[in-house]
Nucleic acid binder design. Structure first.
Length: 430
RNA sequence: UCCUCAGUAGCUCAAUGGCAGAGCAUCCGGCUGUUAACCGGAGGGUUGUAGGUUCGAGUCCUACCUGAGGAGCCA
């Protein structure tokens, strides 16, 4: 049976339409029943007057419960009293399935309860708004890279060995050998960019870190561009353009969702290149002035990142960290070999690191040396060393964590709401 | 792994060491414009688990379990 989606309902004013959806909320007033119906595309109020309908229709409207699935036929009418401006004068109502005792009521709930009911919580207008923004962000990343002639080249999820050490890898069985879930597609993208020039991978990544903070998930999604012949400055420029494009795209296409989330968009509207660039040492000076006790030469903690980011309205690019705190594959700065050609992009408003990138070591002997000093098994990296033996070139790339970007753009307290089914420390259900 | 806090009705919470309660949800009744409606009524409890102190424990003590927030580490 043909039916109409709620988002298109304004085109059918005065006409009879059929809506298929779920009951979001119901209020009763004497011989009147107001049914708020959602169908995934929108919300519309359906009004049932006892006098105007057959007794069985009014009985169904009286009996229908929150989240019951239903089919409604009625005439579309503009009405100022209706949320959204249009409502449905119901003539027929079929309850497809009567939902009994839906656990999530229109009142407040605790986080633990909502997470236990994540499969149902997803139906709420706030959650669908967040996940629509997520969808837009992902499409924006793909469009941005496609427009710049990047080729999507997927990288494996099962990997034979560590990318950057084994302590934070999820180990799994691969028939009769051990395998690990990927932490990053980067090393493989370094191979594919030598074939395609400009590539990106976009997939889930897994980190077995026992992190329990608002910024961490065990399973999260990253978009990772990698470019042959690119140096650090090139990927810094790409990073600020990508972030700006994504933010503006969401502002342009997901206004309603941001409004639903009560996001103050004035700060987001300012997100355009160029972003401020500061060195690790400049960032460190900011921390010292703020009284941080982080020792020089070490990586920044979450609160440090917030202190630095608060100095700027735009995302800030912190580059050239000490070589020791960065991964084995990061190219040292020829101007000062103690510094790494790397960049972290810190989002404003305390959302922390959304991008980590670097120029990669392209010299065979240097890479070999770095593998050894990081105590990594050479056998596992023979293929990776080959890339430096057969036509090596300078190359750079970065990874952007989708969930942190979603949390920032939506203005959320916690990344757990940015992904349909978050995998968190001690929580894998549902 | 460490630190802090919490666990009482389906949900959110209250209860000085002295009868275990409220709001919402559910069910029944009323109301022709509700927006988390409102008004009246009803049902609903092994107070996370195990032990201990006490005349008496939801409350105090110990251990454990579960959850939340944070640290370290990271995107």
């Amino acid at each position: 049976m043909a039916h109409t989606y709620i988002e298109e309902i304004s085109q059918y004013q005065g006409e009879e339409v059929t809506i298929k959806g779920w009951l979001y909320h119901k209020t009763e007033k004497g011989k009147l029943r107001f049914l708020m119906v959602r169908d995934g595309t929108g919300l519309v109020q359906a009004v049932v007057f006892q006098k105007n309908v057959k007794p069985e229709v009014f009985e169904a409207a009286d009996r229908v419960t929150q989240e019951s699935s239903l089919i409604i036929k009625g005439k579309v009418r503009a009405d100022e009293r209706a949320p959204g401006g249009y409502e449905l004068d119901v003539s027929e109502l079929t309850i497809f399935q009567l939902a009994e005792n839906y656990p999530i009521t229109p009142k407040e709930h605790g986080v633990a309860f909502l997470m236990d009911n994540r499969h149902l919580w997803l139906r709420s207008s706030r959650q669908t708004a967040i996940l629509r923004v997520r969808s837009e962000i992902i499409h924006a990343c793909r469009d941005f890279l496609a427009e710049r002639r990047f080729t999507l080249v997927d990288t494996p999820i099962f990997t034979p060995a560590a990318c950057e050490g084994t302590t934070t890898l999820f180990e799994t069985q691969y028939f009769d050998q051990k395998a690990y879930l990927t932490q990053s597609g980067q090393l493989y993208s370094e191979a594919t960019c030598m074939a395609f020039g400009k590539v990106y991978c976009f997939g889930p990544t897994f980190r077995a870190e026992k992190s329990k903070t608002r910024r961490h998930l065990m399973e999260f999604w990253m978009v990772e561009p990698e470019i042959a012949w690119a140096e650090l400055d090139d990927v810094m420029a790409l990073a600020e353009e990508l972030v700006s494009y994504v933010v503006q795209r969401v502002l342009d296409r997901k206004k309603e969702e941001l409004k639903r989330l009560e996001r103050d968009t004035t700060l987001l509207e300012k997100i355009h290149p160029p972003f401020p660039r500061i060195t690790y040492h400049e960032a460190f000076r900011i921390l010292q002035e703020a009284g941080s006790e982080t020792p020089i030469g070490s990586d920044f903690g979450g609160t440090d990142e917030t202190v630095i980011a608060e100095k700027f309205d735009l995302p800030v690019m912190v580059h050239r960290y000490p070589v020791e705190v960065k991964a084995f594959y990061v190219q040292p700065d020829p101007q000062d070999l103690s510094l790494a050609l790397c960049v972290d992009v810190l989002a404003p408003e305390g959302y922390g690191e959304i991008i980590g990138g670097s120029q990669r070591v392209h010299d065979y002997h240097l890479l070999l040396q770095r593998l050894e000093s990081h105590h990594l098994p050479r056998e596992a990296f023979e293929w990776y060393l080959d890339l430096r033996k057969y036509g090596t070139v300078p190359h750079s790339g970065f990874g952007m964590g989708i969930e942190r970007v979603v949390a920032w753009i939506c203005g959320l307290e916690h990344v757990r709401e940015t992904i349909p089914f978050p995998r968190m420390l001690y929580r894998i259900y549902p």
